[in-house]
Design a protein around this nucleic acid. Structure first.
Lengths: 110, 110
DNA sequence: TAAAGTTAGTTACTTTATGTAACTAACTTT
DNA sequence: AAAGTTAGTTACATAAAGTAACTAACTTTA
């Protein structure tokens, strides 16, 4: 039933950003390189899915994985140029969220 | 394990746009109102998931559902102001996709 | 007028994606 | 030696999507 007449590049971009966690991972990395467990705890993702996403994003050349042979070894994930170039997208999402969404409080009021 | 210190509005926006099909549905509607089966065939989504998404987007006030009592009845889905305000986000994704993605051809070459 | 088609969905069932939690291996700190 | 940290992996459970057939109300065609 796939018959989309939609631009394939656009569809690819959408399918990338529609993967759960992907946009949040990229967003965290906009502020600099991150380690595996830092991402894990800052966005609340499981190790399993995080490792899947990082492999996928690396393969898509959006992030790069660097092994720093300190003793204990440090694995550092950071954005490539292609990855950084998603910043305007994330910023627009943030702008929209500030303008149009508000935090529900109802559930907290007894 | 949810401990995110991320802005809750931003997270909400991300979780909206990370739902499969949602961004494509909104994108189609940027060009005007659409009927159920027009969306179905233009983006290649199943009736089941489309009806779920439309209900969800309506409840979030991003789209509105209008019953036009022509004979045969027409159900017209269109963006609200909140929905239209996502246009810059979609445009940025499109810009990025044009600048950074290309169509794989390898699989077509024998 | 019966048969076939369209629209806007829904239902039942299957496959895929995520979540949860425990585990590993190599190293460090107590 | 025991416990903790880092960067994952594995096995199992639940949730989300895909597939395809079905419904109900109406219309068009033979």
């Amino acid at each position: 039933m796939k018959q989309a007449n939609i631009c394939p590049r656009f569809e690819k971009a959408i399918s990338l950003l529609s993967q759960r966690w992907t946009a949040l991972i990229i967003n965290q990395m906009l502020s600099g390189p991150h380690r595996f467990c830092a991402l894990q705890s800052s966005i609340g993702i499981s190790g399993k899915v995080l490792s899947e996403r990082l492999k996928d994003l690396e393969q898509k050349e959006i992030i790069k994985r660097k092994v720093i042979p300190e003793t204990p070894v440090i694995i550092e994930y950071s954005l490539t140029e292609k990855g950084y170039s998603l910043e305007p997208v994330l910023k627009e999402i943030e702008n929209w969220s500030q303008a149009w969404l508000d935090i529900e409080r109802a559930e907290n009021i007894k």
